[in-house]
């Protein structure tokens, strides 16, 4: 019970911060829109459904990366990370709360991105929405974890994509598969398995990332 309250308080703090500063979400929205426009010109005139499905996932992945890169910026700029770590709660609560906050941003961005995609390219089916939901969990969970690692380094923003993209490869496979094929059950199952597996590892090992 106490754990859930800790997570809730931490996540609320991040959302409140975003509401006041409005740093991340507008950037993500603008980015995903621009990416669609750029991709329209990058793709040959009559591109197949397969190609545009890949495009959607590249756009989502990079938009998420943009948000993840900002996830620990407030802590870094205001030097409140030590305070967070010293807070009397389980350290994994920090990861869970951050993931939830990032997830909220990403979902908000996708609420705009998916209709925009349907408008510009192809319609979006139920399987795609399910894939987006499952992929978001994995992207935010793993991405937040790696973001916490990246802020501890000197390279910071530079290193997060390098850490994240190889780990995100299975997500892309599952997500694109679910978007493209007729019976997406297997791909959705794979995404769910990925989420579960990495959520457990992140949850169990986050303590070591923030501990000195």
């Amino acid at each position: 019970m106490g754990y859930a309250r800790d997570v809730g308080a931490l996540a609320r703090k991040d959302l409140l911060l975003e509401l006041r500063a409005r740093d991340t979400l507008p950037a993500m929205l603008l980015f995903v829109g621009s990416v669609f426009v750029v991709f329209h010109f990058a793709l040959p005139g009559t591109s197949s459904r397969l190609a545009t499905a890949g495009l959607l996932w590249v756009a989502i992945l990079f938009t998420a990366l943009l948000g993840l890169g900002r996830a620990f910026v407030p802590e870094r700029e205001q030097r409140t990370f030590d305070g967070l770590v010293l807070a009397p709660c389980d350290r994994s609560a920090i990861w869970l709360a951050k993931s939830l906050a990032t997830l909220a941003f990403l979902v908000a961005a996708e609420l705009v991105a998916l209709p925009l995609y349907a408008l510009f390219f192809h319609s979006v089916g139920g399987a795609t929405v399910a894939a987006v939901a499952l992929a978001d969990l994995g992207i935010c969970g793993v991405g937040t974890f790696l973001g916490a690692m990246a802020v501890a380094t000197r390279a910071r923003d530079l290193i997060l994509p390098l850490l994240f993209l190889p780990l995100a490869m299975p997500i892309v496979v599952g997500a694109v598969g679910a978007t493209v094929v007729d019976s997406p059950g297997r791909y959705l199952g794979f995404l769910a398995l990925y989420d579960l597996l990495f959520a457990v590892i992140c949850w169990a090992s986050f303590e070591y990332v923030v501990a000195e």
Binding site: M149, A152, T153, L163, P166, L167, M169, P170, V173, G174, V176, G177, V181, R186, Y187, F190, Y194, L197, F198, I201, S205, Y208, V209, A211
Partner: peptide, 26 residues
């Protein structure tokens, strides 16, 4: 700590990626 956690991620990534590559080939 960071290196160790990342190395542990790697050993999980190996089977997951392998499954993903198998899936992507269908």
């Amino acid at each position: 700590n960071l290196s160790a956690v990342y190395a542990l991620f790697g050993v999980v990534l190996i089977p997951v990626s392998f499954a993903a590559i198998r899936l992507s080939k269908q």
